[in-house]
Every structure is written in structure tokens, then in C-alpha cells.
Design a protein around this nucleic acid. Structure first.
Lengths: 187, 187
DNA sequence: ATTACCCTACCAACTGATAGGTAGGATAAA
DNA sequence: TTTATCCTACCTATCAGTTGGTAGGGTAAT
């Protein structure tokens, strides 16, 4: 445990950014949540941009690990695919939060370049995983499955955002169900 | 012409909010764009919350009028439906902006109640219009078409957000095309 | 004695908001 | 037709609070 505070900062920043975005992050509140002073954060992160990038990076790293574990546990790729929307549902369950990178995608113009890069990678990780699972589950050709992977990802992100705007998880569920009915997601 | 500045403020605030959100709005920059002083904005809007609500309200009013005109001009509801994604495309064309209410949906927790209300109405206006057109175009039952309307709206919002995160309008186009292929949107 | 970690005490810049005033046009009573 | 009164639309000056960030010092473990 080289640094407990660093991890605590990262965790608190993640939760805040899922509710208030990158612009909503501030050192004082963050420090208070962790139990240190604002200036002490600078010992772990040289600037807000660095913190933001670290948070976004950790976010896609965790996502990648989680999705990988899903595939390892289950032999059935179709089952994995059906479970995918559950990942985004969890954010809503956690106090009507949304995906960190969805929020930051909205804030894109105001993001420092290093943060932008990590946000982009989050999308890449998700699309790559979906595409891979899609190929395994439906035997589609790579190019086609990549297009479909992107469509699924975008649709789910939109569903999450719309559900947040109503603070209504049930709305998210019906949207996902509608995607299945329409044929965007496997039934 | 009771007040030209009021309209100018509304127009400038709309553009800014589409790029930086409600939190990104500030009186000084806004005033500078309009050509007046920050304090003078208070003559037209009692508070930032009032300004935000007025901007969001004007936004859905304009959208409602535009969509209504679409229906009036064309006799074919299916054609209207096919044109719908074009509305959201225009925001991206305009300097990689997104729908004001998508951004504000992300910021939902930090929004004053009056602003929240107008943001919700924007969704209602869009879903109601889509539902109506869907019924006319596909002869579906109201309940079913409402579910589908919501799905279409959410998917398009997601596509717009994803395209912004890459500053890539072509990505938006391929996503919409994928929705058609998948059967979410009419081909 | 060096490093990791955290502190107090600042700072300049910026935030929404208020107080109080000015210029000019409309209205209406004298 | 002058005078008094009010209104719209803006101004300057200032406020208290918050922001990201810095300087420099303390302390405990290695």
C-alpha cells in the first residue's frame, strides 16, 4: 500500500465526476471527503488535469477488467452480451449517476487533452469488447460487428442519459427492452 | 421590439450551453458576447436559474415549432420520421455542439428546479412528436409507439453524444445508419 | 538524512449577485 | 407647453464566496 490517499482521492473523484462532471470536480470538496486538505492532493496529482486523466484512466481500466472477467466466467458470449446493459444500470442504481465518460463526452470541449484521450479510450474498450463478443455470438464479420457494437454502445449511453434526466431506472429498463424488441440487442 | 438584448442574450446563452452546459454559462462572457455589461443581464433575467430556464424553454419551443412545420409541409409521416435525425445532426454541424437538453440531462443534479422542468419538457415534446408520427406511419398502437419513440430518442441522443466525443459527424451518420439496419429506425 | 505525506497560509482569478446611479423616452398633470 | 413622474435599459463599483494552484514548513518512517 504505497498510498492509501491516492486511491481514496481517485474513488471520491470518480463518484463526483459521475454526478457533476469534470467541471464539477473541485479540490476542496474532494479533500474533505477523503479527510485531508486540498493542498495535499497536489502531492498525488500535479494538477486537476492530471487528476482528471487518472480518474478517467482508472475508469476504463476497471471496466476493461470487469468485462474481461465476464467473458472468462461465462462460456456463452450471447449471455455476456445480454448482461452488458447491466453495467450501465449499476451507475443509475448508485444515486442516479451516469458513466463518467458520457458526462465527460458532453464536456469534451472544456477537457484538457490528456483527459480527452482517456475518455476516448473508454469508448474504444467498450466497442472493442462488444465487437469481439458480437463476432463470437453471431458469427458476424468484424467490420459489420464493429458498426453494430458502436450502435449498441451509443444507444445504451443515450438510454442512461435519458433515464438520469428522469431519475427513473425503470425507464432505462424499458429502453433496453425496446432495443431488444427492435432487434438492436439480442432477445 | 421591446428588447433586442433579451433575445441576443437568449441566443448567445443557447450556443454556450450547447458546448459548456448550464455550469459553463457565466454572466461576464455572455454579456461580452452580447455587447453589454454583466450586471445588465439582471435587468432581463432575475437570476441565472431564470436565464437557464428561459433558454431551455425557448429551446423546446423552437424544436416543437420546427417539428410541427415538418409535419405540415410533408404529407408523408414516414418521410418526416426519416428526416428526424437531421435535427440533431445540425447541432453537431454547428461546431460540434450537442442538444442543450442532453447536456443539461447530464448536469441534472446541479440544475435548479425550474431548469429541470424545461429540460424534461424537451424530452416530452420530442417523444410525443415521434410517437404521433410513428402511429401515422406504421399504424402502431399508441402504447407501443410511445415505447418505440422513447427508444429512438434515446438512441439518437446517444449517437450525438458519442459523435461529439470524437468530433466526428461521419460517426453520427454511420450510427444512424446502423439504427436503420438494426430496425430501430425505418429504412 | 532523505523521502513520503500532510499541513497552514496564502494568492490571483473568477463566480453570481447587489447597490446605487445615469440617460433618454413616454405619459400626464399644471 | 412646461414640469413632474415614471419606465426601460443600461452603467460603475463592489461584494462575499469559490476556484485551481503555490510557498514553505512539519513530522514520521526508511
Amino acid at each position: 500500500m504505497s498510498s492509501n490517499s491516492r486511491e481514496a482521492i481517485l474513488a471520491a473523484a470518480k463518484l463526483t465526476a459521475q454526478t457533476r462532471g469534470y467541471g464539477g470536480l473541485n479540490f476542496r470538496d474532494l479533500a474533505a471527503e477523503v479527510g485531508i486538505k486540498a493542498a495535499s492532493i497536489y502531492h498525488h496529482f500535479p494538477s486537476k488535469a492530471d487528476l482528471g486523466a487518472a480518474v478517467a484512466r482508472r475508469y476504463w481500466e476497471d471496466t476493461a477488467a470487469y468485462l474481461e472477467a465476464l467473458l472468462t466466467e461465462s462460456a456463452d458470449p450471447l449471455l455476456c452480451l445480454r448482461q452488458y446493459p447491466e453495467t450501465f444500470r449499476k451507475a443509475l442504481e448508485n444515486n442516479n449517476r451516469i458513466c463518467l465518460c458520457s458526462f465527460m463526452a458532453a464536456e469534451y470541449d472544456d477537457l484538457p487533452e490528456p483527459v480527452k484521450k482517456e475518455v476516448r479510450t473508454f469508448t474504444d474498450v467498450n466497442v472493442a469488447w462488444l465487437s469481439r463478443v458480437l463476432i463470437a455470438a453471431t458469427a458476424a464479420i468484424p467490420e459489420e460487428s464493429e458498426r453494430r457494437a458502436r450502435a449498441i454502445f451509443a444507444a445504451i449511453v443515450g438510454a442512461q442519459l435519458m433515464a438520469r434526466g428522469r431519475a427513473d431506472i425503470a425507464l432505462y429498463d424499458t429502453l433496453i427492452e425496446s432495443y431488444r424488441v427492435a432487434g438492436l440487442l439480442p432477445a
